[in-house]
Design a protein around this nucleic acid. Structure first.
Lengths: 110, 110
DNA sequence: CACCATGGTCCGACAATCCCGAACTATCGC
DNA sequence: GCGATAGTTCGGGATTGTCGGACCATGGTG
């Protein structure tokens, strides 16, 4: 289960994390990662092409929001909850709690 | 003191707010708006051209983060703290508290 | 092993967006 | 009116985002 490269906790920055979460598709992905730890890249019920998903997950990984590991031909994905809570206490909680009752995908980025 | 157009509180969306805050320059602007309610567009000590500032403030306004009003030849700017707290309880607080001790402008957007 | 199916990534092209200088507008003070 | 000040608008070059299709790696099957 080789880990894909990810930023160290102390090198996470607030703007990059907010930027990563500031997209309806990625916010939805994060929701799913929260609901199903260890989930795989492909998600159901989202009309988003594969290659677009890849780049969204990459943004989340490079911002330090999720961790990805190669597992066979899949990538397993987890929220980096502990590191995020440690670095930005309260942030993830408040965002996830709020986005939980948001109707997702209602805001199209420009 | 004519108000510039701004979204109604109930039409604010989480991704658009996070997107607006997910840029180091805008996060810094929000910090300043918090520190100096009613401040004007031009900010000191930031090496950002006027026209770029205009568009950053507009992003913040259109996301519902700040309110702007025409006051003579200036625009006065306030954080929409109450509306944001009402719509997204805890969010603004945690972001502002965290960004307060962040070294700003260290993250360049991609 | 050969072969195929599957889960993702990479690449390239087009579209959308961002940045910022220069020109412009509106307002204030004299 | 005139000049100065505070911002906006416009346009173009650079950057970024989207996504189809080709590609790669792995696992399963015969």
């Amino acid at each position: 289960m080789r880990l894909l490269p990810e930023p160290a906790p102390e090198s996470l920055t607030l703007p990059s994390v907010l930027y990563a979460l500031g997209d309806p598709v990625r916010l939805e992905l994060v929701q799913r990662a929260l609901a199903s730890p260890g989930l795989t890249c492909a998600v159901e019920g989202m009309d988003v092409p594969k290659s677009t998903l890849t780049s969204h997950w990459r943004v989340l990984r490079e911002a330090g929001v999720v961790r990805m590991a190669v597992d066979g031909r899949c990538r397993r994905i987890w929220l980096r909850t502990d590191e995020l809570n440690d670095r930005f206490p309260g942030l993830l909680d408040s965002i996830l709690r709020l986005s939980a009752d948001e109707p997702s995908l209602t805001w199209t980025p420009n």
